[in-house]
Design a protein around this nucleic acid. Structure first.
Lengths: 124, 124
DNA sequence: ACTTTATATAACTATATAGTATTCTAACAA
DNA sequence: TTGTTAGAATACTATATAGTTATATAAAGT
C-alpha cells in the first residue's frame, strides 16, 4: 500500500483540515487574543472586557460571539450583564508554546547578530 | 500594585500579541495545512507538493513564500527545482493538540446525544 | 408605564488575502 | 544560441472579515 493513495481521504484532505484551520483562525486575530488574555484571570462581563481591551462595543460583541460559538468561551447572563469565561483552557497552552518559540527565535537572532557584528563586544 | 495598570505595556497589549496572532494565522488556512501535512514525511519540491495538494502553481508558490518567511519552512534550490522542508516542527505539536481537542469534543457530543436520544439503544 | 443600562444585531465600509491568469527569470539540454 | 522546464513575481478578481454606526432587545430601576 502506497503512503498516499491518489484520492486519499485521510488527514491530508481539506475536509479534515478545515476544523483545525478554523480553530487556529480564532487565535489569529489580535483583538481576540486580547480578549482571551483578559479572561485568563477569570470571568468578566462585556463592559469590563471592553474597558480592559479598548475594543468597541459592537466589535467586541461579535468577537465574543465567535469565540463562544467556537466553544472557546462560555456565556452566562447575570441580570442585565453577560459574563464570559474561558471554556477551553487549551488555548493558553497553545499560546505559550508559540510565545516560547518566538522568544527562542529572537534569542537565537540576537546571538547570531552578536557573533557576526564587527563592532560587538564579543570581538574585544 | 494592581494586577493591571491603566496603560499597561505587558503581554496584554496589542504590540506583543501581534507576532503570536501572525504565527497562528499561518496555520489558519486549509491550503497551508495541506502543504505542511505533505512535508511531514520529508522534503519535497514545488511540483511534488503541487501534485500532492492539487494547489495551483502560483498560489502554492505564494503560500510557500509566506511559510518560509514565517520560518516554518526552509527553502533549498537544487538545480532547477526548489525543495522545501519543515523548519519548525512545533507546528505538528500545535496541530496535534488541536486535533485531539476537537476529537474529544466530538466524542463528548456523541456521548451526550446517545444519552439524551429517546430512541437510542441506551434506553433499552 | 417610561427610562436607563448592557448587550446583541444589522447594515455598511474598508482592508486583507486566497485563488488565478499571465509574465518573468533562471537552470539545464539540445 | 534556442528551447524547455521549474519556480517566482505581478496584476487582477472575488471573498471574507474587522471595525463602525445605528438600531433592536431585554433586564432593572423609577
Amino acid at each position: 500500500m502506497p503512503k498516499t493513495a491518489p484520492s486519499d481521504k485521510t488527514s491530508k484532505s481539506p475536509e479534515y483540515l478545515a476544523p483545525v484551520a478554523d480553530y487556529f483562525k480564532m487565535l489569529s486575530e489580535i483583538s481576540r487574543l486580547q480578549i482571551l488574555s483578559c479572561l485568563r484571570e477569570g470571568a468578566m462581563n462585556v463592559s469590563e472586557i471592553g474597558e480592559a481591551t479598548g475594543l468597541g462595543q459592537a466589535n467586541l460583541s461579535k468577537h465574543l460571539k465567535m469565540l463562544t460559538e467556537a466553544e472557546i468561551l462560555s456565556r452566562q447572563p447575570e441580570g442585565v450583564a453577560v459574563y464570559y469565561k474561558i471554556d477551553d483552557p487549551m488555548i493558553f497552552e497553545l499560546c505559550e508554546l508559540v510565545c516560547d518559540r518566538l522568544y527562542e527565535r529572537m534569542q537565537q537572532k540576537a546571538e547570531k547578530f552578536k557573533r557576526l557584528s564587527a563592532f560587538g563586544s564579543s570581538t574585544k
